[in-house]
Write a protein that binds this DNA or RNA. Structure first.
Lengths: 194, 194
DNA sequence: AGAGTTAGGAACTGATCGGTACAAAACACA
DNA sequence: TGTGTTTTGTACCGATCAGTTCCTAACTCT
């Protein structure tokens, strides 16, 4: 009953998310956004309400795709014990840094630091994602051994901070050796959880 | 022989640094910068060449003041053993988070994530600061015990990533309890250095 | 084929961006 | 009290910012 879209909103969203991921909210100009998404202004404002909206939608998308994927990996017992799964996650990150330099980092981590997120809806979304990650570490830890809840919670948070720290260092052009060293320390944290 | 300055370039620089620290390079508009520094455009461009220059100068200032202060604290044997000094640093950070929420975080950490720094002079300055911190941790560790260099290096890097991770979480509005838990994990990392 | 509906695209909005030009103001020196 | 020098403030610059308007193109349904 009307003219159909000439672009796939899903892939356009993906392109937008990647740009925000790379350069942050403020630094992603509308012009760059349109170029990345390969659509024009009319289509943009018709399909996605405005810049703020698509940023929030990008956060949701990251949560749905990437964070969920990470949580799933950490929960899947087919990947080994909880300790192995956690180390596997860190190994993947280190691999990304080694292979392509990984200047993208982690969208969640980048957005946490980005002041554009503060105070509003974005911050709440980010905190929710942080808690999802924390809980995924927590569960992986308690899968392996009978741990006091408080102890497991502590270790999960320690791993979480090591994770974000590694991501920060990776984004800044950290050497691969440095990543490997960071992971050795996570191994040691996991020793406590035995 | 000429009209004297009506402002103190040093305190103006401090104000500029604080703004960049808070909101990053891109998000700090010239208008906000001028308002914070309490000078007008004419004075700004005469005293500090342009926005990019004062940003780089802010990084240098942060290195001279804050990073040097941190390194000095970590090196000063009057503050206790190396382990105690390291834990003292983390304690200070946790305190800042508890007291005022610390939404400022660490300029170095924030700037590492800020894409505006990538590739140029800024990135080199940031990496240099990271290495200063890493070396300070390294020395504090080797002050306490005879450690193999490679082992101490590893642990220093692990502590470094935990440090940045804590800073990221703090900036995002992390609860004080979470900070305390992170520090418990650093304690455990230091156990290995005995 | 014609009517109805929505997407696409270009022209345009006022506001703000970082930066410059220049004249008035304020000082040191003679 | 001039005179030379530098700071200061303002008006202005073109470019870009996010967002709107509106006309045309492309489709579906009758």
């Amino acid at each position: 009953m009307a003219r159909p879209r000439e672009f796939d909103p899903d892939v356009a969203m993906d392109k937008a998310m990647t740009l925000f991921w790379d350069v942050g909210y403020e630094e992603a100009s509308l012009a760059e956004l349109l170029q990345a998404m390969e659509i024009t202004k009319g289509s943009f404002y018709k399909a996605f309400h405005d810049k703020q909206s698509i940023y929030l939608a990008s956060l949701d998308r990251y949560n749905d795709k990437v964070v969920s994927g990470t949580v799933a990996f950490l929960s899947d017992k087919a990947n080994g014990t909880g300790r192995i799964r956690i180390l596997g996650l860190f190994g993947k990150v280190a691999e990304a840094i080694e292979e392509d330099g990984d200047r993208l980092g982690c969208f969640l981590c980048n957005a946490l630091v980005d002041k554009a997120a503060e105070g509003g809806e974005a911050e709440a979304k980010l905190q929710a994602m942080v808690h999802r990650l924390e809980n995924a570490f927590f569960k992986a830890l308690t899968d392996d051994a009978e741990l006091e809840e408080a102890v497991a919670r502590e270790i999960a948070r320690g791993i979480l901070s090591a994770y974000f720290g590694l991501r920060v260092l990776g984004r800044a052009g950290l050497s691969a050796q440095m990543a490997a060293d960071c992971i050795r320390q996570v191994e040691w944290l996991l020793e406590k959880a035995k």
